[in-house]
Design a protein around this nucleic acid. Structure first.
Lengths: 212, 212
DNA sequence: TGCAAAATACCACAAACGTGCGATTGTCCC
DNA sequence: GGGACAATCGCACGTTTGTGGTATTTTGCA
């Protein structure tokens, strides 16, 4: 049975060696490469078959783990990348996950957890520490459209939609088979309901408050 | 020691009873209420201290679990709600998490997993099945800004930013201490670079492609 | 049946925008 | 020294928008 190949990118020598030891002692896993910097790993990735999994630190000298992550994914999209870091701030977590991380572990994770995480990504999962998972769900609640209700009618929403798409009033009139004057009237009502008095204000409000 | 109080909302009688049994056999947990419909639970929540955790199905008669989730959260924001359902489509997962679910389990979860999930939310975690966690991370990669580069200069981005915020050219000129003509020229260049010829087109492009 | 809201249409005028030109200054880099 | 680029400023003119009105028809609902 072919063992799972794993690369490490971690600048702390001792932690890197410890990790490599943990992985190599696990069944069917081999830590075939370990680097202190993303640049080295990226170089090698150009001429070598990619590993199954990369364990990646974020706080690295040179290009950061998150920037590196994007580049890794460009070269080897199928390789799973698990972030292993001390950083748990929303920004780092968010950016790492957007960049395509398959998992996010904190460095206080036990060796067993780390091995389990590798198994989990290979099984199609997304290993995360408890607190990271919690942050992730919190981020979702912030995405929730607040949907302020300005009492726009259906037709007004339709006109607003067309304005947002970049058409002029005349073009909207033509598209909806109504007169310019009607579109103009609708716009007046929309502006009044949204408390704006420019097109740009209306469009911005539409985007920001998910009116469209 | 006060036991953790748990409510169930699950329309299948047999599964509901099984779940209640599992919970009541666990240490320091009590299933104090079990409902077939959200409406009943919402009624009782008006006159009763809220439970610590609600296990909530999604496919319910009457108002759906996701709509119910929003109402539960309005009445009892501190209560943790764990979705327990057969549905694993992106839309349901996304909406449930946006509505404030603390966890998302599929019904093929073992009794041990369910009990562990309750413990996990109480400890500040966010229990999810492996496949759900994977979906969640996938959703993040879709959020990733594509950041098309239209070669806007720093000043042009600044002007665009002001346009998006709803100011007129004259207002921008005053704000940045430059002449109207300069703003006008920048606008011309912005429009040319973005391949648009109206303000609305520029603003929409800015929002849609995360230029700002 | 009758009322309120929504959708439609029109006019006029000032303000703001879009676009065609041209021009100067400063900076960076080869 | 010269070329490329960014930022600045200017003018003219036609187009579009924003806003003040008024008015008719359709539609939903009580």
């Amino acid at each position: 049975m072919v063992p799972t190949t794993i690369w490490l990118v971690e600048d702390n020598v001792r932690y890197r060696n410890t990790l490599a030891g943990v992985i190599n002692r696990a069944q069917r896993m081999i830590c075939s490469q370990a680097f202190a910097r993303c640049e080295e790993a990226l170089d090698l990735l150009q001429h070598t078959p990619p590993p199954d999994v990369i364990l990646l630190d974020i706080g690295l000298p040179g290009i950061s783990g998150i920037q590196g992550l994007e580049k890794f994914k460009q070269i080897a999209p199928a390789t799973h990348i698990i972030i292993l870091t001390v950083y748990d701030d929303n920004d780092k977590v968010f950016n790492a996950l957007c960049a395509g991380a398959s998992g996010y572990l904190l460095k206080d994770s036990t060796p067993e957890k780390i091995i389990a995480a590798i198994d989990e990504v290979l099984a199609g999962g997304a290993p995360m520490n408890m607190q990271i998972a919690h942050k992730v769900l919190e981020m979702f609640t912030r995405l929730k459209p607040v949907q302020a209700d300005y009492g726009l009618t259906e037709r007004e929403r339709e006109i607003l939609q067309q304005l947002v798409s970049g058409l002029t009033k005349q073009q909207i009139a033509d598209k909806l088979f109504i007169s310019f004057h009607t579109v103009n009237t609708h716009c007046k009502n929309i502006y009044s309901k949204l408390h704006v008095n420019t097109l740009s204000g209306a469009i911005s409000k539409a985007y920001r408050e998910h009116l469209i």
